[in-house]
Write a protein that binds this DNA or RNA. Structure first.
Lengths: 133, 133, 133, 133
DNA sequence: GTGGTCTAGACCACT
DNA sequence: GTGGTCTAGACCACG
């Protein structure tokens, strides 16, 4: 269900956070539902449990899930709302990057065209393995 | 003329590269014009000369400037063209981030609105010091 | 009659111990009175019988109840006295936390005010699920 | 300058967070000042660098310090304000524990007496190595 | 030198 | 079984 890219500049634990957020957004992990256990998912992804623990801790910090030691980790009731809220914050980042592009000589019209061409799929977002910042 | 944020996730040398590119685009550094010397600029910015050296090396690698041993470092004649070219590559990154936002529940229309609201200014671009990946 | 929070940092069995102590203090569980059976209460609370067993064992260890094999588990005659005694020990913990607050910039006067504002109610005490140590 | 108790129930990294907060509060770590490096302090305390990294990450999350990769970690300008703010939150926890004590048969007057007897010192706060929750 | 990430492997308490 | 913490040791990029 999740896929990671070990060679990406984006840390593995962040890739996992992003992907789980996407899955929650898509309703594939529902509120109150248990997330995969640290050990099980670590084995499945072929990564160290500590790395996954870090990802889960971050999700918990954001209020997207809660851990119940001894019994598991569960998606928060208001997880979707939290994600939508944080998405609003990311708009600033979006505008920043768009501004950079515009300063580089790309027109707003070209950016709007690029937006239209996007089709949403489900995969690891924001992979930027190349060294072009 | 340049400003750096040592707490940004973006490496200092990349911040400098971006900003010099912006200045070139805006015509403030003109082709054939000399760039500030490593030592002088390092002092001005309060950073390590090695860091600045790295930034200049990156600019050279991209073909934006050339060093003339003994007399300094000069903006390339085709610097603007090179920047425009590389901007096209960044469109992919732009689409990736936009896709991420859309998966998070933001509509394309909202993104287009955000684009319209942008006014190009001159500052350090792409500061992403926050922990919102 | 009892309520547990599986997401609390406080182990479930400790939550139960605390709450039963509170009920004893309030006279809702009287000396010589029988406590609910492990199986029945486990079902009612939706928890594992082993967890409840652990809570009862702890109560016995403290001398708050005694098990009479075959006929159930009963509140000790001196349960209230035992609880009062252990409360004295907790004063140290109280002072430790108060000291921490004072070091954080809160005045003793504010703490006294906070004390005055307390009204005793009946609920799960000491829930500290937040990440404020 | 810092001291940890490896046998405490409180995780080492939380002990460090608390103590550094105290030191900031006392003005021993001043805003803009660099904190000890991860490696150096880990050696000094005899703990693993990862553990310290976790503590520092938590401080950063709270907004008490900022890391500048490659050059160090610095106390935030508004660190003291942040600590004072979070102390206000802790008042709720304080009231919760006080309420528990009162339900256990201690009078408010006794608590006020306990408060008066406190003298603020500088040491690891909240050590609760015993198993009396 | 700095911080950041990751792996491997262990131990603990709780359910 | 679950999550949480810790150690040991390694590698990387950045300054």
């Amino acid at each position: 269900m999740l896929g990671i890219d070990k060679f990406s500049r984006v840390p593995i634990y962040e890739q996992i956070v992003s992907q789980i957020e996407t899955h929650i957004m898509l309703g594939e992990y529902k509120p109150e539902q248990a997330l995969p256990s640290v050990r099980a998912l670590a084995v499945e992804l072929g990564i160290n449990p500590n790395t996954l623990q870090k990802a889960y801790a971050e999700l918990e910090r954001k209020g997207l899930c809660q851990s119940a030691p001894g019994s598991g980790r569960f998606v928060s009731r208001d997880a979707v709302a939290v994600i939508k809220e944080q998405a609003k914050m990311k708009l600033e980042q979006f505008k920043s990057i768009a501004g950079e592009l515009i300063r580089s000589g790309i027109t707003k019209e070209e950016l709007v065209e690029a937006l239209k061409s996007i089709t949403v799929s489900l995969s690891a977002p924001g992979r930027e393995g190349s060294d072009e910042a």
